[in-house]
């Protein structure tokens, strides 16, 4: 069972490595969206650092979302998804491997790039640290919840926009706790409560989301 899990993970990472431009697109999207806000709002450091937590978190949310449609689409079109459905291993476990690969490819780079953009937004050092920590704790939840939406809209017309409509409302708690953690540390308060809640969101979705995604895949493929 473990073996299948690792094979799927390795395979997805290898596929992503072979199509590096897909990964770069997500990252560039994050970069561009977060660079647009200073252009629209103005370069005052005080204003920028006060909107930074929200803007960076929303940008991370959107970057994670645009890559969701790719999560199952390729496997669906070449038939390997059906093989996973009839595999003896539990589907939820294989889904978890795919989601983990998606997070490593699309979530982790955003987490690593975020402090650089945080610097552009004149965030102080403590807040930068909390930003990275909050993204590290929160982005897995985004990939996990997003996988449900990706599975439900598999092969549906206009799935890219539909996935946004389905998934973004479910992302709201993660956004609130994530941006709240950074804002709290900016105001000299402890970010611990927010980070704990963020970790709770991730853990809860770690337990429930793969099961829901597996059920959604069975509905979509049947």
């Amino acid at each position: 069972m473990n073996e299948a899990w690792i094979i799927v993970l390795k395979r997805d990472l290898l596929l992503a490595f072979r199509r590096r431009s897909d990964v770069a697109t997500t990252l560039f999207f994050f970069l561009i969206v977060s660079s647009l806000f200073p252009l629209g709002i103005g370069p005052e450091a005080a204003v920028l650092s006060s909107i930074a937590p929200g803007v960076l978190w929303v940008a991370a949310l959107l970057a994670g979302m645009i890559s969701l449609t790719r999560l199952f689409a390729a496997d669906f079109s070449d038939g390997s998804l059906e093989q996973m459905l009839i595999a003896p291993q539990p589907l939820a476990l294989l889904v978890l491997a795919k989601v983990l690969a998606h997070w490593i490819v699309c979530g982790l780079p955003v987490v690593l790039l975020a402090p650089l953009i945080g610097l552009q937004y004149a965030l102080p050092n403590d807040a930068l640290l909390v930003l990275v920590l909050s993204l590290l704790l929160g982005t897995p939840a985004l990939s996990l919840i997003g996988a449900i939406g990706a599975a439900l809209t598999l092969g549906v017309r206009g799935s890219g926009l539909l996935v946004a409509l389905l998934v973004l409302p479910l992302y709201i708690p993660v956004l609130i706790f994530g941006a709240g953690a950074v804002a709290a540390s900016q105001h000299g308060m402890s970010a611990q409560a927010h980070l704990s809640l963020l970790a709770a969101c991730s853990l809860l979705s770690l337990v429930l989301a793969p099961l829901a995604t597996a059920a959604a895949l069975r509905i979509s493929v049947e």
Binding site: I148, L152, L170, I172, P173, I176, L197, C201, A212, A216
Partner: peptide
């Protein structure tokens, strides 16, 4: 399935807001 996922999320969303 979406309605069920939503129902699980509604209390979480409510309290976070």
């Amino acid at each position: 399935l979406l309605a069920l996922v939503g129902v699980v999320n509604v209390p979480i969303i409510y309290f976070s807001v």
